[in-house]
Amino acid sequence: MAMPSSLDLLQGTLDVLVLRALSWRSMHGYAIARFIHDGSAGAFTILDGALYTALHRMEEQEWVASEWGISDRGKRAKFYRLTPAGRRALRAETATWHQYVTAVAGVLRAAPASS
């Protein structure tokens, strides 16, 4: 299960993005892909294969659940939604991500102390 990504996405970041996408409503895979693409204003180009791998892996972890339904295009599609465990995971991952960002930003802002 390789996670090919052209613009390197940090490990685990894709999961947070997917969980975030699903936190509003249930979506099928293609809608999630569009959401991430649009939300990042095209900054990330994620291979769709990696996205589906992440979805199925999270389903195995019971972070998301899937069911078949009818898409707005009138076709049968597999919809994913967040489980309570997924919601907890999203909260934790988001917090971690913010800490990480803060820490990295802090380091980037800081000037070396004179020794």
């Binding site: 099928h28 895979g29 293609y30 892909a33 589906y52 898409s71 295009r73 076709k75 599609a77």
Partner: peptide
Amino acid sequence: ELQFHLDA
């Protein structure tokens, strides 16, 4: 699922 994605 993949077919739907490609079609869409």
